[in-house]
Amino acid sequence: MSAATQDTAVSTGSFTRAFLYLVLILFALFYLLPLYVMGVNSVKPLTEITGGNMMALPSVWTLEPWRQAWSTAQIGVEPTGLKPYFLNSILMVVPAVAISTIVGALNGYVLTKWRFRGDTWVFGLMLFSCFIPFQIVLIPMAVVLGKLGLAGSVPGLILVHVVYGIGFTTLYFRNYYASFPTELVRAAMIDGAGFFRIFWRILLPVSGPIAVVSVIWQFTNIWNDFLFGVSFGGTSQPMTVALNNLVQSSTGVKEYNVHFAGAILAALPTLLVYIVAGRYFVRGLMAGSVKG
């Protein structure tokens, strides 16, 4: 990756180069500033925040705010901390990402390699689903979940996110598989492999980059979703809703240090996914768009 960037970089004089770095570093600092504020304030006692400078490093270091945010903070009426909600989020996000990615891959496979009459229409409608705002589907979705008996449960949230995500994942995989040579599928057919065998043995092993794109996209979207969570979460609300309840509570003193720790906790999983899979993300996006 870095070799590729250097190859394509325009060569410049050392003065321009220094100037470029300076600008880039300034930008980076600017973007990192909120993280810094969150970080330092989550390890200070509350008195240091209310009485002093938000930007200063703590004079007394403490992990107490983190412990509180995780396990004892008041969320709504219960002093449970964010822990159970974090668990809810995990229970929701893992199956939802897995299912929507697998279904998207299958859809992409069918739409490119097992084409049928009207397939472009089907794909068009799926694309269309990417542009429907969340708010429009709230009421019909509530009705459907009610009828299915899934209202206010984790499986209900999984269903909502899978349905909403399939449009995107199908788009990704369809475009990726469109450049996959059809002759390979034909060769496998002659070799005697069936529908699933071809998918499993021939296509899936080369789908790594686009699967990463799909997983990152779905993970961040589902993890960060607030609207569906607050509408359909019921008793199994996700992390985002709990964080809101923690921060927005109007009773008692505002424990900013706990809030900061909670916010970081809520952002941690997506951060982790980006760090682990981020470099494949760009690669996968490119693979889908430009060939070769």
Binding site: P181, E183, L184, R186, A187, A188, I190, D191, G192, A193, R197, R201, I202, P205, V206
Partner: peptide, 26 residues
């Protein structure tokens, strides 16, 4: 029947040996 394609259509994720025996395995 067996077919040889213009683009060869070799399975990119398999070794030469696996490519050649895939049909027999199936």
């Amino acid at each position: 029947i067996a077919m040889v394609f213009q683009s060869y259509a070799l399975y990119p994720n398999m070794t030469v040996g696996q490519n050649m025996t895939f049909g027999l395995e199936m």
